[in-house]
């Protein structure tokens, strides 16, 4: 279960998240919509602890994600619209590093297989600096295969994907939906979110409002 408690964060003293609270049961897929600059990405970055917050905390199965030990995030995976990978290293090396950092080292075969599933096995020995935007998005999806996550934080997953890539993403999302896995997806596209999310909130002026629940 994910529980966000009174999370506050400001940028330039301007509050972006105001005393934000949320509860999501296991297997729920939480969607968050909002205009540009509403703080959707900030919320995810705060949960992933890339950004520091001013006050409040979040808990996954009772373990504090923000104030607690960094170990508590071992089941939380954040896929942002940045690659969050090293441009000089190859796709394969980046995935191997990711697996090791999450404490689950993977063999070369497992990594090749993950790259194959996202259609990148041909490019696995290329430095990812040479990858296109869509290929980098696919590489992000490959992270979800090699890291055993319990909570996935997805930031605008559709941007930059071509038709094949979108299809790939849909397949992944459908499978996770069927497997009842917990996710939090951020997007500006309400109708797209409705296809996957069990509950949708809108984020504006730093406050969450429940939009719909299926």
């Amino acid at each position: 279960m994910l529980e966000i408690q009174n999370l506050s964060k400001s940028f330039f003293m301007r509050p972006v998240l105001k005393d934000l609270s949320l509860r999501a049961k296991d297997g729920e897929i939480v969607g968050i919509v909002g205009a540009n600059g509403a703080g959707k990405t900030t919320l995810l970055r705060t949960l992933a602890r890339i950004s520091a917050c001013d006050s409040g905390d979040a808990f996954l199965d009772g373990n504090s994600l923000i104030k607690g030990s960094h170990k508590n995030r071992e089941n939380v995976l954040f896929i942002s619209h940045h690659p969050n990978l090293y441009p000089v290293l190859t796709g394969e090396e980046n995935l191997r590093l990711t697996a090791r950092l999450y404490g689950h080292p993977k063999s070369a075969d497992e990594i090749t297989e993950a790259l194959e599933r996202v259609g990148l096995s041909r490019y696995r020995w290329d430095p990812i600096r040479n990858y296109s935007r869509g290929m980098l998005q696919r590489l992000g999806l490959a992270k979800t295969i090699i890291v055993p996550w319990k909570l996935l934080l997805l930031d605008e997953p559709t941007t930059g994907l071509d038709e094949d890539g979108s299809q790939l993403l849909e397949n992944f999302l459908h499978r996770w939906q069927e497997e009842d896995r917990s996710m939090m997806i951020v997007s500006h596209d309400m109708s797209w979110l409705k296809r996957y999310c069990t509950v949708i909130y809108s984020l504006s002026d730093g406050v969450l409002n429940k939009e719909s629940q299926s």
């Binding site: 992933a48 602890r49 960094h70 940045h82 690659p83 969050n84 990978l85 090293y86 990711t98 950092l101």
Partner: peptide
């Protein structure tokens, strides 16, 4: 600065790694 390209440091920060 290498860590800032592709926001690579985000990987290390979000991973369960002690700072």
């Amino acid at each position: 600065s290498l860590e800032k390209e592709f926001d690579a440091i985000g990987l290390v920060l979000s991973a369960p790694v002690n700072r």
